[in-house]
Design a protein around this nucleic acid. Sequence first.
DNA 1: GAATTTTTCTTGCAATATGCAAGTGATAAA
DNA 2: TTTATCACTTGCATATTGCAAGAAAAATTC
Lengths: 150, 150
Amino acid sequence: MTKDKKPDWDGCPTRYAAGIVGDKWCFLILRDVLLHGKRTYSEFLKGPEGISTNILANRLARLEAADMLDRQIDPRKASRVCYFPTRKARDVLPALISIMVWSTKYDPATEAPASFAAGYQADPIAAIDWYEAEIDRIDAEILARFDHGQ
Amino acid sequence: MTKDKKPDWDGCPTRYAAGIVGDKWCFLILRDVLLHGKRTYSEFLKGPEGISTNILANRLARLEAADMLDRQIDPRKASRVCYFPTRKARDVLPALISIMVWSTKYDPATEAPASFAAGYQADPIAAIDWYEAEIDRIDAEILARFDHGQ
DNA sequence: GAATTTTTCTTGCAATATGCAAGTGATAAA
DNA sequence: TTTATCACTTGCATATTGCAAGAAAAATTC
């Protein structure tokens, strides 16, 4: 970016993001899928925020349509559906972690340990990589079960 | 952050952030105040998204209550009200810019020039500082008018 | 192999939130 | 003194949400 002139394009990237993550429930589902290893309808439903079933179904469909979640049926157990985060969803990790660091600074009731923000600030890239690796691990484990049963 | 153990706290920072910025309109008002130099009710109202007046009033009050906006009446012209971004609001800049960079990558219709993401990635701190300086400049200008008339 | 359970949703309905248009009150300008 | 501006409020039709119940398709248990 140039250092002495204000960019004159009209804020559309914010609007695009608002359309996808600018919704409380989508935001929390993304947290669950990116940070808490959740992949199934019933796991999302069990979250502490108590999303209702119709809203959950609606938001999962919306996130799938936005290419944030990849819906796959377990070939070994057709009643089980898994929602995997896409590359596009994974790529919100930096922004997600960044806003979480902000929350730990301003929420007096934060449950996040100080080490969370400190670790991120010390080495942001390593922190993101760590979460990505977790996602890889979880998805690989599920896909392995898909392939050679149980 | 430790590199080999998953943090076990329960995602509250995401929920805190969702409560404040996890709303389309709050998100866009924050964009306007942090990135577009808007400070007054009528400026927010004129935005291209067409927020309705009751919703705008509601969200401004919500953001003020969340300590994101500082509402001040122009002492020289009592019919004019200014909403200034607080330090807390300014501190969402890194996350806001980060999600905007994400949008430029995934929105095929993005209006942001490639230089935006490139500039941020080359030197994130300088980019944030540039926006902070703009905010300082705008607010100083308004406050100066507050003091010596006109 | 019949009955129960699990899992992923769908439907109906009351409550809440939103969008739109019009109105209000307090300045400020003409 | 009249008109205009600015920051909201109010009323009402429509849309979205939350809650509870249901339903279809497996999968498991007996």
